[in-house]
Amino acid sequence: MKLTRLLRHEVVLCLFCVFVVLSIGSINPAFFSLATIFEVIRGAIPYMLMGLGVMPVMLTGEIDISFVAIAASASLATHNVLIRHLRYQGGLAGYLLIGLPMGAFLGAIVGAVSVFSGLPLFPVSLGFWLMLYGFNLFFISPEMRFDLPPGLTGFYRRFLVTVKDPVVGETGLHLAIVYVLVVGALLAIILRYSTFGRGLYISGGNKDVAIRSGYKLGKLLIVAMTLNGGLAAFAGILQCAFKRFFDPILFRGAELFVIAACVVGGVAIGGGRGSVPGVLAGVFFVQLITRGLVYLGIKPVWHQFVLGSILLGFIVFITTRQKLWVIFGRRKR
C-alpha cells in the first residue's frame, strides 16, 4: 500500500526523466547543461498548453485530434485580421485578444456537432481536422507569413534567466513558462474544486453515475472542447511567435505527439484519470527524448519510429501495470 502510494504515476515519470537525462548525458556530456534544459522547456511550452487543453476532453473518455488544426486556423486567421485589416503594431496581447475567443469558438463548434449528432468525437474531429487545414490553405494563405508586427519580433528571446552555452549559444528560461504555470494552476483548481471539473472525472469514470448525479454529459463535453480550442489557439500563437512565422499547416502531425505525451503523463485512455502535473511531466519527458535523440546522433528520419515505439510501450506499460499491481498485492498477502 505504502509503495503503491509512493510510486504515483507522476513520481515514476520524474524518475524516468532523471534516468533519461543521466543515460543520454553519459553518452554525450554536452547534454548536461542548463541551456539544454531551458531549450527543452521552450520547445515544450506550446505542447504543454495543448496537452492541458486536450486533457479535459480525454478525461471524459473521448479522443480529439482537431485541436492542432484549431491552433493553426486561429493563429493564422488572427494574424491575417491584425496585419492586413487593422495594421497592428503591438505584441502578444492583441493576438490573444482575438485568437483565444476564435479558438474557443471553433472548439465549441466541434464539440457541439459531436454532441448534437450523437456521434463519437473522434470521427467528427477528424473531419474538422481536414476541413480546417484545407480552409487555412485555400481561404487564408497557402504560404508561410513572415510579416510579424514589431511588438512580436523580439518575443522569442524574452527570457527570465539568461545563460551562455558553447553548443547552443545564448539562451534562457522563457517568460512563457509563467503563462503555462498560471494556466496549469487554474486548470488544476477548476478540475479539483469545481462541479464542472468533478463532472469531467465522473463522466469518464462511470457514465451512468454521472447522469444519475445530474450532469449533462453533452454540456460537459462542449465546455471541455471550448477550453481545448482556446488553449490550442494560445499554443498556436506562442509557437508562431517562437518560430517567427505564421504557418498554414502549423502542428500538422503533432496531434499524435500531444496525445502520446498525455498518455505517457498518466491520463487514462478510457477517461476518468489524469492530472495537470502528469500532463506537464509527460510533455516534458517526450520533448526531452526528442531532443536527446539528436544528441545521441540518431538520424531525424528515425525519430518518428522511436516516438511511436515509446507511445506503444507506454500504453502497454500503463495497462499492464494495473494488472501487475494486483498480482503484486496478492503475493504480499
Binding site: I269, V301, H303, Q304, F305, G308, L311, I315
Partner: peptide, 21 residues
Amino acid sequence: NIPPILTTLGTMSLFRGISMG
C-alpha cells in the same frame, strides 16, 4: 484490452516511423 483508437494510432505512427526510417 487496450482501446482500439489508441492502439491503432500508436501502431500507425510506428509503421510510418519504420517506413520513414
